[in-house]
Structures are given as C-alpha cells and as structure tokens.
Nucleic acid binder design. Structure first.
Length: 490
RNA sequence: CGGAGCGUAGCGCAGUCCGGUAGCGCGCCUGUUUUGGGAGCAGGAUGUCGGGGGUUCGAAUCCCUCCGCUCCGACCA
C-alpha cells in the first residue's frame, strides 16, 4: 500500500468505539447496528427486535429439543406468586427478596386531578416470579404422592423479573427470558446426577451451537443459588477478560421439598421428602454470543444460531439487469432452502456496498454477491463473515450449493476453536495469593486459577476480592475441585 | 444507594462560562449521475433545547426543583 493510500485509509471499523477503546459502549453499539434489541421505556427492560429474537428462537429450538431428549416435558406455571410462598424458604428469600417486584393493587382509578392511581389493594401482595421454585414446589407437593410419580421432570420457557440495580441489555435486564427446568427424584444421588447431567447438556449446547466454550464446574458455597446444596455453572470468558456465568444447574437437595412439603410414599411404606434440581439458561446467552464472537465490524453469528445463514446480495448496476438478477437470487434462495440453508436476499434499493455492510454488521455467516458478472459466468462470489474480505471465494453455482453446508460447518468449528484459544489465554495459573494480587494489579486481562485451599478462610483473598472486584467463578470439574478460577464477572 | 458524566432533529454532537429568538455531521425525502468493501452533486423536511417553577423586556444559556439515561462500584443469570 502506498503512503498516500495509507493516510486516506484510516482503518475504519463499522462499530465505534472499538473493543479496545471502550468495550461496554462497543457492546451496545454492536446490538444497535445489528438491530437486535433496544432499551425499553422502562429502565431495565428491553425490546428484543426481530433479528435478536430470531437468535433467541433458534436457541429455544435447539435447546428445547435437547431438553426433551432428556425425558423432560414442557409446562407453564404462572407469573404471579403469592408472597407467602416465597416467604416459606428462608435462604431462598434472603437471596431474592431485594430484587422482587411486588404487585400490591389490582385496579387503577382516576383521582381528582385526573391521574390514574392504584386502588383496590390486595389482601395478600404477590410477587412477579424471579424464578419459580416456590410455586412449582407447591404444585409438585400435590402431583407427587408415590415413588411411582418419580422422577418428575418438567421445564418451562418463561419470562422472569429481578429488579436490577444496574441493567445491561441482554446481560442483565430486569425482565429476561429463560427456560427453567424443575426435576424431582427419590434420592440425593439421583438429584446430584441430574444436576450434573443438565450442566453437561448445557455444555454441549454452548459448544455445539453457540461456539462458546467455558470453564465448567461447581460454585463455591457463597456463590451458590439460594437454597441449593450444589450449583454447577459454565463460566465463559468475554473478550474483555470478564467471566460470564452462562447458565446454572442446581442440586437443591431437600430444601424445597421440605419447605413446599413434596413427599412420596416409598417402596418401604414410609413417607420421604423428595430431592429436587433446577436448571436454567437465559436470554443473557445472546449477550455472551456477542461478547465472545463479535468484532469491530459488528456481530458474527455462529451458523447454527444465525437468523439466516446466507445473505444474498444482488449487485445491480443497470436497471435492465435488475429483474434477471433478482430472479436468479430467488432461485438461489430456493435451492439453498432445499439444502436446509436459510438465506435472505437483500432486495432493498441500497447500494451494493451498503448491503454488504448491513450483512457484516448483522454478522450473517456467509455473504453471496450476485451481479451480472456472476450470471454471465455462472459463478458466485461468496465471503465468510469471520474471515474478512480476504476470504472472498468464487465457485460455480453447483459447487457453491454442494459446498455451502461444509462451509457453514467449518465456520462453526473455527469459531469454537478460536473462542477456545481465547478462553485458555484468559486464565493464568498462579501459585500464591501474592501472585494473584500481582496479576490483578497488572495489565493483563482475564482471571486466575489457584489452589482452592489457598482462598478458603483467607483474609488476604477477601481483600483481593474487594480491591479488584473479583469473585470465585467456579471449581472446574477438570481440576477435580482442587482449583478455583477467580475473575471479574458480568 | 455511592462516585463520574450526560439530557438540544431519527442518531451523534456544538452552542451554555459571557442571556438576544436554533446550528453542524450522519441519517431521512426528491431529482440526477453512480453502484463489486461505506458515492458525488442539487434541492428539501424534521425541534415542547428532559419536565416544572423562578429571575429578566428577552432563557437552550442564570437560579430552584423534579425526572431520566450511560459508565464505574455494591446486588445478581
């Protein structure tokens, strides 16, 4: 490149600021540029736009199938929970009381000034579910009578509300979407195995669909879900070095069967309290998808979750060719559909360069350019989003159609591989609390892995937590509970 | 709830210190030439200056008061 060209071509990114310059702002701008979501009039709530919701729908579609394959049925439990229900379980209420939205009235009336004011105070206030253990426990106490009723495995897709002090779109909103599974077993061991099984289902989902790897393990006691005897988690690392709890699976022991009185008559004729689990994955995973894969030009969608996998971009120079090109695009889209590949043709009147940037910012895995040249030569030009413009390739229509499946699979795999490399680089092994302090005081981003023993009952570790706002993220299964990962977290 | 910023056109901002009747860029609309990694030209539309109150002949600007948003912390998926 000549000097002149260099000076004219300031490296321009589709998203400003870049990740390097200001990660939180970059994150919000990626979402805006890809038209995935926006903030709602109510603080902490979001409007999930069609393109963002399509990602969630794909998450639902695939995860739901995986959950059902575990012998779980879907059901739906109500949004409103009697206040008395959540008050039943002391640990649980300690964990959630501060974030509960409370419904106290059921009617609006106009006052003298003409303003609508709440009237009709409820005799018993209700809370909007922050999670559904208590109400599902109440229902289960009637459904479960005999060991023959077990195991009971039910999942619901729902919205929940936790009044957040500091909301961030997708990552922490007051209202969010999720699935919550609630299983009941005869024994501790069955519940424990189930909690472990479900975190493994999530791991598979995270790796195979989201192309997001993570550190999988147990939460330390103080980081557990309120009421759980074990909480398992996937801790993924974002590009800024912070960890994100990607989902959780809890062994709830007999906590909720005690408070909700879920009992079954066992084979030996005695009444026993059941053992329960719960496990959830929320719309924050969309945020993880962005913070792991997106770059300074915007979103990069893993092919398996992309709203559409191929963007067909008609390159129209001359009105005379328009109809022919569009017809060609329609045919191409149909043939892709026949191959199980979702494609969308950009039929807007935008200039071709703008069509490209739109597809780039939305992170569409593969862009295909179709112009007069392609039609004349019977060849297509296509580009993988994650490889940049240097990844441009040409192929005949036939070659393209027969290879597109493989191209998408390869991209999915490459995204996971790259994410895994980044993840490994995010965690540094340290041998002492001194080294941990030095690490967090230094420039390097990410977290540390250290012997678990060293942080237990340690005043210095409490000080480090405070000084650098880091927390124990998990005790990875790979280290058999001997090591703990400590990092800043979302 | 603490700390720091900010609220002016759809978006991003200037104007505020020092009061004088609303501006820039992008986007949008029309036309035209363009179109393969962010087009050029010519026209055009768009504002309760966050809300309320006060000072003043006159307030985006000064004073009081409320509200909201963003970032950093505490809480958390």
């Amino acid at each position: 490149m000549t000097e002149a060209a260099k000076s004219n071509k300031a490296p321009r990114t589709a998203i400003t600021p870049t990740r390097e310059e200001n990660f939180p702002e970059w994150y919000q701008n990626v979402i805006k540029a890809a038209e995935m979501a926006e903030n709602a009039p109510v603080r902490g709530c979001m409007v999930i736009r069609p393109y963002g919701y399509a990602v969630w729908e794909n998450i639902q579609k695939h995860l739901d199938a995986m959950i059902k394959a575990e012998g779980v049925d879907n059901a739906y439990f109500p949004l409103l929970i009697p206040l008395s229900f959540i008050a039943k379980e002391a640990k649980h209420i300690d964990g959630f009381a501060k974030e509960c939205a409370v419904v106290t009235h059921h009617r609006l009336e106009a006052n003298d000034a003409g303003d609508l004011v709440p009237a009709g105070e409820l005799t018993e206030p209700m809370i909007i579910r922050p999670t559904s253990e208590t109400i599902i426990g109440d229902v289960y106490s009637r459904w479960v009578q005999s060991y023959r009723d077990l195991p009971l495995k039910i999942n619901q897709w729902a919205n929940v509300m936790r009044w957040e002090m500091r909301p961030r779109i997708f990552l922490r909103t007051s209202e969010f979407l999720w699935q919550e599974g609630h299983n009941v077993f005869e024994t501790h061991d069955q519940a424990e195995a189930d909690a472990r099984r479900m975190i493994d289902v999530y791991r598979e989902f995270y790796e195979d669909y989201m192309a997001v790897p993570g550190y999988i393990g147990a939460k330390t006691p103080d980081e557990r879900f309120p009421g759980a005897i074990e909480t398992y988690t996937i801790e993924a690392f974002m590009q800024d070095g912070k960890a994100l709890q990607g989902c959780t699976s809890h062994n709830l022991g007999q906590t909720f069967s005690n408070s909700a009185d879920i009992k079954f008559l066992d084979r030996d004729g005695t009444l026993k309290h059941a053992w329960t689990t719960s496990w959830g994955l929320s719309s924050r995973t969309v945020g993880a998808l962005i913070m792991v894969h997106a770059d300074d030009d915007g979103m990069v969608m893993p092919p398996k979750l992309a709203p559409h996998q191929v963007a067909i971009l008609p390159i129209v120079r001359d009105d005379a060719d328009t109809d022919k090109i569009l017809a060609f695009c329609d045919e191409l889209q149909k043939q892709l559909a026949a191959k199980g590949v979702t494609a969308r043709t950009d039929k807007t009147e935008a200039r071709s360069s703008d069509k490209m940037w739109t597809a780039i910012k939305k992170g569409v895995p593969v862009r295909v350019e179709v112009g007069a040249r392609e039609i004349a030569e019977g060849k297509l030009t296509f580009t993988r989003r994650d490889l940049g413009k240097d990844g441009k390739k040409t192929a005949t229509v036939g070659e393209f159609l027969s290879s597109i499946g493989g191209v998408l699979d390869q991209m999915q795999k490459d995204m996971l591989d790259r994410a895994r490399e980044k993840m490994k680089a995010m965690v540094t092994d340290v041998a002492s609390l001194k080294e941990m302090r030095d690490f967090f005081a230094g420039e390097k981003i990410g977290g540390v892995r250290i012997d678990y023993k060293l942080i237990q009952d340690s005043e210095e570790f409490e000080a480090i937590k405070k000084d650098f706002s880091v927390t124990p993220r998990c005790l990875p299964f790979d280290d058999e509970g001997q090591k703990v990962i400590v990092a800043k977290a979302y």
